[in-house]
C-alpha cells in the first residue's frame, strides 16, 4: 500500500530552545486512521503543524503523498484538510458562510461547493443552524462546523487535532461516528491526535504513543497491549486444580505462563480469543466443568503508564484544558 504520510527523523526546536520533537519516525498508510496519543506538551500539535506546512521542521523529512512539505508546501496544502486544536471559526459569519469561504479558499467550483456545503451541513446536523451567526453556536457545533469546513475540498488526508477536546460524551461519540464514516465511505486517510485513550482505541487502526517529543511505541492497539505482556485468560473451574493440570495447561501452544490462586487459573496468552475455545473444548473432553471464563486485556492506559511511568491524563490536566477551551470560546463571543 502506498504511504499517505512519511516522516523520518523529524526534529523541531522552537525559537527559545524547546525541543518539541526529538527525531520521530513513522508512516501512515493510505486509507488508515492513525492516532497520535500523548499527554499535554508531548508534541502532537507540533507534528500536525509540520505535516500541514504551518511550521517548518528543524531537521528531518516529512512527506505527504510523496510530496515534501518543506520544498512544495503549496502542493501539500491542497491535499490536506486540517481541523486545528483551537477552534477558529469566524464568529461574525454564519455557519454556511464559514464553509462557503473555505470552499472559495480551496478553489472548489461554485456549483459544486453549493451542493457539498449542504451535504456536509446535513451530515454534521447543522442544517438548521446554518443561517445563524457562529457566535450563537455551542462548542460541539463549532467543532462540527470546523470538521465540515475541513472536508469541503474532499481532502485525501484529514488532520484532526484533538477533535473532541472539551466535549461531552454524547457529542464525542457522534463525532467518532462521522470520522469513521468518512474513512469507510470516502477512504479518507485520517491522522488524529488525542489524549483520550478510548478515542485512540475506538478509531485508530494504529497508534503512536508520543511523550516528550519521542515515539515510545507504535502499533495497533492490540499489538501495543500484547507487547505489554499480552492478555490473560481467567478460568474458574469446578475442580481441584493440581500440578498435573498445571503441566497440561503449560504445554498448550500459546500459553506463556500459568498462575493459580484461590482456585482461579490465570493463563498469560498471546492470542487469547482464539486460544479460549481450544481450552474450553480441551477441558470439556476431560469432563472438567468451567464455572466462569474471562479474557482480560490490559488497557492502552496500562501500556502508557508502563512506557512512560506516568498517567496519560490527570484531573488537573483535564480541568485546565476545559478551561482553555471555554476561554477560547468566550474570547470569541465578546
Amino acid at each position: 500500500m502506498s504511504k499517505a504520510v512519511n516522516i523520518e527523523n523529524l526534529r523541531k526546536i522552537y525559537p527559545g530552545g524547546v525541543e518539541a520533537l526529538k527525531g520521530i519516525t513513522f508512516d501512515v498508510d493510505e486509507g488508515e486512521v492513525f492516532g497520535l496519543l500523548g499527554p499535554n506538551g508531548a508534541g502532537k500539535t507540533t507534528t500536525l503543524n509540520i505535516i500541514a506546512t504551518l511550521i517548518k521542521p528543524t531537521s528531518g523529512k516529512a512527506e505527504v503523498f510523496g510530496i515534501d512539505v518543506s520544498s512544495k508546501p503549496g502542493l501539500v496544502r491542497r491535499n490536506i484538510g486540517y481541523v486545528l486544536q483551537d477552534i477558529a471559526t469566524d464568529d461574525e459569519l454564519t455557519g454556511y458562510e464559514n464553509i462557503l469561504l473555505q470552499a472559495r479558499l480551496y478553489h472548489v467550483p461554485r456549483e459544486k461547493a453549493e451542493k457539498r456545503i449542504w451535504e456536509l451541513l446535513s451530515m454534521m446536523e447543522l442544517e438548521e443552524a446554518a443561517r445563524r451567526k457562529v457566535e450563537t453556536y455551542s462548542g460541539g457545533m463549532r467543532r462540527r462546523l470546523e470538521l465540515a469546513a475541513a472536508l469541503i475540498h474532499e481532502p485525501k488526508l484529514l488532520l484532526l487535532d484533538e477533535p473532541t477536546l472539551g466535549l461531552d460524551p454524547n457529542v464525542r461519540r457522534s463525532i467518532w461516528g462521522y470520522i469513521r464514516r468518512l474513512n469507510k465511505e470516502l477512504g479518507t486517510t485520517v491522522i488524529l491526535t488525542t489524549h483520550y485513550i478510548e478515542e485512540a482505541e475506538e478509531l485508530s487502526s494504529r497508534v503512536a504513543i508520543i511523550d516528550y517529543g519521542e515515539i515510545k511505541a507504535l502499533g495497533s492497539p492490540r499489538e501495543l497491549k500484547a507487547k505489554l505482556g499480552g492478555e490473560v485468560i481467567e478460568l474458574r473451574l469446578d475442580y481441584i486444580v493440581n500440578d498435573q493440570l498445571r503441566n497440561i495447561f503449560e504445554s498448550i501452544d500459546g500459553v506463556l505462563g500459568v498462575t493459580i490462586s484461590d482456585g482461579v487459573v490465570r493463563l498469560k496468552a498471546v492470542n487469547s480469543s482464539s486460544l479460549l475455545p481450544q481450552i474450553i473444548s480441551f477441558l470439556n473432553a476431560k469432563n472438567i466443568k468451567i464455572l466462569e471464563a474471562f479474557i482480560k486485556t490490559p488497557s492502552l492506559e496500562d501500556v502508557f503508564v508502563e512506557l512512560t511511568g506516568r498517567k496519560l491524563r490527570d484531573e488537573e490536566g483535564s480541568r485546565e484544558e476545559m478551561f482553555r477551551f471555554r476561554r477560547n470560546i468566550q474570547l470569541r463571543r465578546r
Binding site: R77, Y82, L84, D86, A88, L331
Partner: peptide, 12 residues
C-alpha cells in the same frame, strides 16, 4: 489571536 490566521496559512 482567534487562530483564524492559521487556518488561512494552511489553505492553498
Amino acid at each position: 489571536r482567534t487562530g483564524y490566521l492559521n487556518k488561512l496559512l494552511v489553505a492553498p
